[in-house]
Write a protein that binds this DNA or RNA. Structure first.
Lengths: 145, 145
DNA sequence: GCACTAATACTCGGATAAATGCTGTCCGAGTTATCATGG
DNA sequence: CCATGATAACTCGGACAGCATTTATCCGAGTATTAGTGC
């Protein structure tokens, strides 16, 4: 499994937004990309894709920025990935095409699908709220040392 | 999850070889690529990569060809994929780099790793012998209809 | 103090270029079985 | 019948071109806040 840079940046940005979900003011672009060392011109397009997917909302004008469009409990990593990398096609398109005429290909295709869905299951089970909670749990753990 | 064509072809070829594992004669290149509609010039390189990985063996000369180097029970899909796509790096290299300095990134990186390993677990648990067995089981099921 | 205007900071979104990787082809070289030929 | 050589079939492996995707940048345009200016 290999993530594109877009997906990584999108997830990092989403987590950053989830951390500030309680604040009134939207989070500026600079805040996000300074925290994550991401080229800002690039991040703009990624955030736009997240906006089109209904994951983030934006506020224009001075002191504008971005915020989560929905509560962090309802946004999964899978969703972020799909929003940025496009709809997840079949993992093995060539094999899938052969599957109709060749039994071996069909069996193989099922195996690839099983692996893909095992991965998707994890990604769908992980929400932004989970990630923020884990991060805070670790912070507290360090505090007690 | 998206497989490259190389990986798909490699797996199809490996299954084909696994089906003929009991025969004495090696399987010719034409036999494989005619069965799977794969450009033969391309398949050569893929088989070479599988050979370097110790998954298939080759016999040169006339009436030469390819065969499995090991028993089908010991060859997993994960291994085939690694042989062809190169060693599986970390799923999220950029996030991994940030993980050292940023707790959010570390948590996120763990989530990506969890998804990757869930997928790897399935792929490592599926051997060529499994696939051939499933294919034959389906063939028998059709026979009884 | 108030209305109006200019400047500023930010998002929106397409166009575009550079880089990278994937797909597939070509060519020459090496290797072995098979067949033909001559003794 | 046997030895020798030619031929055909096959693998080996690098080089390379075409193409698609990914990554990243640039620029103009729209929008809201803020500051400044004149009345």
């Amino acid at each position: 499994m290999r993530l594109t840079a877009r997906t990584e940046y999108a997830a990092l940005a989403a987590v950053e937004l989830a951390r500030h979900v309680d604040e009134d003011a939207p989070v500026g672009l600079r805040t996000i990309c300074e925290a994550q060392q991401v080229p800002s011109r690039f991040l703009v397009h990624i955030l736009l894709e997240l906006k089109r997917a209904g994951i983030v909302a934006s506020v224009r004008g001075a002191s504008g920025g971005y915020r989560l469009a929905r509560s962090p409990e309802t946004v999964t990593l899978q969703e972020i990935r799909d929003a940025v990398e496009g709809p997840s096609e079949t993992p093995a398109p060539l094999t899938a095409e052969l599957a109709a005429s060749c039994r071996d290909a069909a069996v193989l295709c099922d195996a690839w699908l099983a692996a893909a869905s095992a991965q998707a299951e994890i990604l769908e089970g992980t929400t932004l709220a989970d990630l923020v909670a884990r991060s805070r749990a670790q912070a507290e753990a360090m505090y007690y040392i």
